[in-house]
Nucleic acid binder design. Sequence first.
RNA 1: GCGAAAGUGGCGGAACUGGCAGACGCGCCGGACUUAGGAUCCGGUGGGGCAACCCAUGAGGGUUCGAAUCCCUCCUUUCGCACCA
Length: 833
Amino acid sequence: MNGDYRDLFDALELKWQAHWNQERAWAAPERPEGPKFYCLEMLPYPSGRLHMGHVRNYAIGDAVARFQWMRGRTVLHPMGWDSFGLPAENAAIKHGTPPAVWTNQNIANMASQLRRLGFSYDWSREIAAHRPEYYRWNQWFFLRMLERDLAYRSRRSVNWCESCQTVLANEQVEQGRCWRCESLVGRRELEQWFLRITRYAEELDAELDRLTGWPERVRLMQRNWIGRSEGAVAGFPMQGAAAHPAAAALEIYTTRLDTIHGATFCVVAPSHPILDRLPPEDPGRARVEAFRRRMAQKDVTRAGAEPEEKEGVDTGLRVRNPYSGETLPVFAANFVLMEYGTGAIMAVPAHDERDFEFARKYGLPVRTVVVRRGQAASASAPPAAMTEDGVLVESGRYSGMDSAAGRREMLRDGERQGFCRSTVQYRLLDWGISRQRYWGTPIPVIHCERCGVVPVPDRDLPVLLPENLALTGEGSALQRVAAFVEVTCPRCQGPGRRETDTMDTFFDSSWYFYRYCDPGNDRAPFDASKVAAWFPIDLYVGGITHATMHLIYCRFFAKVLRDLGLVASGEPVGTLLCQGMVLKGGTAMSKSKGNTVDPDEMVRRYGADTTRLFTLFAAPPEKDLEWNEQGVEGCFRFLEKVWRLFAPRGEVLASASLPGPDEGADQPRRAGLRRKVHQTIDRITIDIDKRLHLNTPVAALMELLNTLQDFVREPAHGDDPCLKEAGRTLALLLQPFAPHISEELWSLLGGAGSVRRQPWPVADARWLREDEVEVVVQVNGRVRGRVRVPSSALEAEVLAQARADERVAAHLEGRILRKTIYLPGKLLNLVVQ
RNA sequence: GCGAAAGUGGCGGAACUGGCAGACGCGCCGGACUUAGGAUCCGGUGGGGCAACCCAUGAGGGUUCGAAUCCCUCCUUUCGCACCA
């Protein structure tokens, strides 16, 4: 490696970074002037050091931001810190450093890494979630939600991470494991704060169709996560009735009302309230209690990942099928979830795999009521559940209908008679936001013996998180801070206790991008008109890991904020780009695997431009990128070659003039160079703007350089305007990818000011057109020759010339020409027989 | 199990709506300059064949003048969900 260039690049990168700083080059005005572009990358957790995944993420965003500046947009490109969360607390427990100190150090460190990489952030808008001037607005939003019954407290079974000693939301459990520490998640019954995201389930689902700028993959994941399903709730009247006058009917949820005549029993979740109504002396009661105890024990240690063996007990309760009049036993079983539907189902073993499995285990009857069209009902027991739609049999007056008609008719009859109604269910559950940890936003409520839950008045915000307390990791640290906990009730002035749960940090990141529009506001979370001026986010870049976490929470917030009248749209993100991971040796870089590459090390050895260039070049943005040091060197060599070509010519070219519109048109070599220049502009512009491809533009830049190298190999005038045009264009086109050398090259070639505000070059249509084109000649679809013709040539002329081609003629010999297909200027296919 | 995406040289990857498969980079081979080169520059590089030509985009079939691209079946890999009634 050539040390001279390394030092040169290092110096020029520092020089231009200082220049940008001094010019406040990336500060966005309060409101956009003219067309705007809000370019955002997901804000990082300040773990201490950047990793390559960050660099890739930000290099992508930065390329687009710089491109859009040059395209004449006012760009908002901010950066901040998702700075509440467990690692700070764990570090404090381990090393005794207070979380605030640890966090601030990490922020300082990572910010300087980002600066050294030369990213174009408007640092004047920097935010950090752990600062009171930020999290007071978390509290403010929470209070608004509380007022609207969007935040509520409830005791229920929740996900519990033993290692993190806290509750997790459903979205934060991945395959039964904690999203952050990967330990197995158990369940606990706790009183918790929830956000009523389910109120927006319908809208969150429906609007996915309109998010055309989002990857299909993400929309699908969200759709599955929300899990909309249309079905019916049917009431099965309780039998043996003396016992239960209060519970008139057991309500079950089904999507297959058409199979109801095949129901041979019902099943309720172990915690279903109907079971509490069993009289103490009932033998079913004893069975249920024993079963509940067994399940409760399991819940705590539950592995979660693989479905458990189905288990259940006969509760002794009996219900009547409202359609057939048949009496059915009610079981309690572990495969029915209280959280979904009504917590009770009708079991149709012939047409549902789970019911079938359970029926087989406990020797319960299986009755076929749907057959495939054209098939007769078989008398023998089916070997497996037939879950498809078909034609109804053994279904009373519905027999003979197809499944869809059966559902429709049964629903109508059931509705008329009052025991059935159609309904829509969602898999999505309310978002549990309570965390039993210290380093987060205090939930702003006070528990008063007399008044119950009392919100902290707005004038008392922020509820400050106390600092300087000893963290042990045992229990909730805040509960031990008397000065924090012991307060007077704002309503009755009696003694109260402050809530000690803190907020899930996903609350912090659900609205941060609005705050960037007005980061200093101390009267409101933001000024609505400023947000209106910048929103929606034009490009949001981040990892796919957030598909069903952050990216669903922030959509929910947008809808809440819209309903609060603070923002106009319930969808904050226009185009979403989920970049792939950075791998080494085929797996994601991680400290535990020891396959990390340190960004600082890369910057020291190759510079920021090379590091960025490689992360953009090595793979398309949305795909995983395999780190390859030799590939990095290739990018370094490319920049070296750029410099080596222009450095000795700089002085002469600086004073050369730029070419006139037609200059060089009559000289093939110079015309070739100009064509390449304009074709490169055209390609790169389309690739960034229309396709968000950043690897192919880098390839195009390399091609342009190859052409330039060929051009200067032959003697040329040192001050050739065509060469100057090529160099200047290269400087402009490099700005999104290797911004420092781009600036240096621009100034070397006598460009005034900084590249960053030069208009993005526009390809001259004249130079995109070729006067003479090469047409591929195929015979029966196989390439047999090529002819050069004027680009205006007509098919007949091309054909004549093609026939004259020796090879083509050989393939036409003795055959009859049946048909010709001509794509002007590109291809001529001769179909012969 | 259900759902989705993707399979192209030795490797990362190009090929926008069906139209020259392999751009660009890495690696490799050869050469030049050199005391030397792991620097730089030049040339070559999917496979077979002296060549014409043939074969080749996971496998097999289909549609088409023409398929990496569209359709069907299968295989593999990756990801998401995982008892959601």
